[in-house]
Design a protein around this nucleic acid. Structure first.
Lengths: 242, 242
DNA sequence: TCAGTTCATATAGCAATGCTATAGGTGATA
DNA sequence: TATCACCTATAGCATTGCTATATGAACTGA
């Protein structure tokens, strides 16, 4: 079978690569397989993508588009933390639905190659977490919370992918998810956690104000005042000692 | 340079492969590079390891021995949860010290190939968590806790590896670590403070910060800075627009 | 001591891989 | 028609993982 049709060769190459990548259980996919399935010869591939890795990057980029679309494609519930849960679940589902693609995206991250995807995924989470912070529901900076949650999310998804599909236990996901969200949220504020007993109230309030200010542009302060104000606010909200 | 010496060829192959794998920044290592560095010809490799992947598996196994040794190599503090923290940190340190090896071990996990390593790492954690459970410090089953903590641990380590070494922020690790441990432990009994749920305006946040600042004297701002800061805060919190 | 057996290494080479130098074909524009 | 940029194909190179076969070394039993 070949992916002929009226599609331009560039598209056919992308689809062929995606299909072979998705069905190759870890085995390496050769350019010859791809070009044959696409009904195209080798130079066409290198003309359009320069490289085998270039083609794979394009496939990953397409997959990432799909992922982002999924992350955005539900109505905000009004409860940011609930939306975070859905984003988490969507992330896991994406990984389980396209494990090979996911492994290329998040399993082989190397310092020099592709922190871009990670940064984008973080930004998605951070965006939603900022709303939570604005509602006073966040314990830490939205950015730090996003990094932490994403890390756990990736780890859980990789673990689930590694398991045979039959015995996958999604409880691992929900449990870890709720643990992370609970840890960054203020629901626990009165708790006995030893290290944040001193910082909590001031820092939480500062973080919330910071997020709220950035969401709604208050005109009570001039721009220069606001700049200095935000700087001080940042200083307070990043303080760790009481 | 070659790894000659009195070592048997099998060892030389292992060391050569480990060294090349450690220094190859993601690039693929060829059998010819390995055999040349080991001062050996190709059939020797296949005689001892059968396969290129067989050799790499052996390298991974050796690396895993080192990892396990590190996980066991500290005296139990008597506080299981504190020991879990050290195991977490040791895991991260191992990943950062040998990133390429770590990526092979935990980044490329595929359902059919190697859940063995994951299972062993889980068992290490579970062993310690069982002690915590015996001391009544655990909220969930040790096995579930181990799976969850390991997943987050792997995710965090992968994220840190993906970052340029210069700007690695280990706070991501400690924060996620404590979040996970806190979530599975029984320490969290204290109640929540649902008073400020639902509102998100700048004013509310400013008022909260104002109150919090006056309650606890933060030393992040000088007194003159603080005075001006509070004035602005007052201006914001008395504004009429939401 | 010496044939037999087993283990370990080397020589030479195969098929498959990623990639490319070069040339041919196509359509739009002048 | 002629030109020119763009896209694709033919053929082949260097490198890859791997192996069929042969040679050496070390030990065994007589």
């Amino acid at each position: 079978m070949s992916l002929d049709g009226q599609l331009p060769p560039k598209m056919r190459l992308l689809r062929a690569a995606a299909e072979l990548l998705a069905n190759s259980a870890g085995a390496s996919v050769s350019t010859r397989q791809i070009t044959q399935l696409a009904g195209v010869t080798a130079p066409t591939l290198y003309h359009h993508f320069g490289d085998k890795e270039g083609l794979f990057d394009a496939v990953v980029a397409a997959g990432f588009e799909e992922y982002v679309a999924g992350e955005r494609d539900f109505a905000p519930s009004g409860q940011p933390l609930e939306d975070i849960r859905r984003m988490w679940d969507n992330h896991v589902q994406f990984g389980l639905k396209q494990p090979e693609l996911y492994l290329v995206m998040f399993g082989n991250i190397r310092p020099e190659s592709r922190p871009a995807i990670v940064a984008d995924a973080e930004a998605l989470l951070e965006e939603m977490l900022t709303k939570a912070a604005a509602a006073g529901q966040l314990n830490v900076q939205p950015r730090e919370a996003a990094r932490s949650i994403l890390a756990a999310n990736v780890g859980v998804t990789l673990m689930l992918i590694a398991e045979p599909a039959a015995e996958r236990n999604l409880e691992l996901s929900t449990m870890t998810r709720d643990a992370m969200i609970f840890a960054v949220s203020t629901e626990q504020a009165a708790g006995a956690s030893p290290e944040d007993s001193g910082k909590s109230s001031v820092v939480v309030a500062a973080i919330a104000l910071n997020a709220a200010l950035q969401a709604s542009h208050s005109d009570q302060l001039s721009s220069s005042e606001l700049k200095l104000f935000l700087e001080w606010l940042h200083r307070i909200s990043t303080s760790t000692s009481s």
